[in-house]
């Protein structure tokens, strides 16, 4: 469905995504996990075609997103949906108008048909009856579910999720996770989820990809990840502060920094 070949994205000296080959299979939930700054959000933006890569290719249904024209990219985008980390609902529109937005933009359906479709999508995420609320009146979890309904509006083949559970209470997070799993199996859709939530990630995944410093350090079925003997993988899954992945990002020696900062007390 979606494939990358030696995909790289550099920001100056920072290698956010560094030579990634991955394969997202049809009708599966692929979960991309990694700590903050591991490059997972950048990877998702590349997969969604929101950024152009430094090098490498992103193949969606056989077409390279980095090479297609803007017009073709927009045509391909009608076949994908995306749920953003902070929902990204359009503030000036009601819940109904937000979910109906892609339908109004890209179809010539009757208003009554659109209404039926929006009602169905909102029912799917359990928010029927909230049509006329504004995004600012919704809680984080509800906004995310509306964003989900909006992403589903065009019956996409692939849906991207950026941190679908972050910032949500455990129950909302559970609801969103099970929604992702359910809609993927029921609607025969393909999901790509980026998250640092290990529990949620492993529970919904068919395929897990673990990133560290812009590179894939492990991939496979959730069970094989859980039982992996790579110390980096174990450290991440168990959330241990000590291990091969250092907590401190400081580049210089602590004592040197303390000693040579202007204004600090010099030891003689």
């Amino acid at each position: 469905m979606l494939k990358t070949e030696s995909l790289c994205q550099y920001f100056g000296d920072v290698k956010a995504v560094d030579g990634i080959n991955l394969h997202v299979r049809k009708n599966e939930v692929t979960v991309i996990m990694g700590g903050s700054g591991s490059g997972k959000t950048t990877l998702l933006r590349l997969l969604a075609g929101l950024e152009a890569p430094t090098s490498g290719s992103i193949l969606f249904a056989g077409e390279d997103l980095a090479k297609v024209s803007r017009k073709r990219l927009y045509e391909l985008r009608m076949r994908v949906g995306m749920v953003f980390q902070y929902s990204a609902l359009l503030n000036s529109l009601t819940v109904f108008e937000n979910v109906a937005f892609p339908l109004h933009e890209h179809t010539k359906l009757d208003e009554s048909v659109i209404q039926t479709m929006v009602t169905m999508k909102l029912e799917q995420v359990g928010l029927r009856g909230f049509e006329y609320m504004m995004p600012s009146q919704l809680s984080g979890g509800m906004a995310k579910r509306v964003a989900f309904a909006r992403a589903l509006a065009m019956d996409p083949e692939v849906v991207f999720f950026d941190e679908p559970t972050s910032g949500l209470d455990p129950i909302s997070a559970g609801v969103v996770s099970s929604l992702i799993h359910e809609t993927t199996t029921k609607a025969r859709m393909t999901s790509v989820v980026v998250t640092h939530d290990v529990k949620a990630g492993l529970s919904i995944a068919d395929h897990v990809i673990l990133l560290w410093q812009g590179q894939i350090i492990a991939e496979g079925k959730p069970n094989s990840i859980k039982t992996s003997d790579d110390p980096r993988v174990q450290q991440f899954i168990e959330g241990r502060p000590n291990g091969p992945i250092p907590f401190s990002r400081s580049q210089t020696a602590y004592i040197d920094d303390l000693m040579h900062k202007p204004g600090c007390v010099r030891m003689r």
Binding site: L50, Y74, G81, M82, L90, N91, P102, E105
Partner: peptide, 18 residues
């Protein structure tokens, strides 16, 4: 500016609206 902060611009882009 706020539409950019809250990813609404990216959301439009993803919904194939320039």
């Amino acid at each position: 500016g706020i539409m950019r902060v809250t990813e609404q611009m990216d959301a439009l882009e993803m919904m194939a609206v320039n």
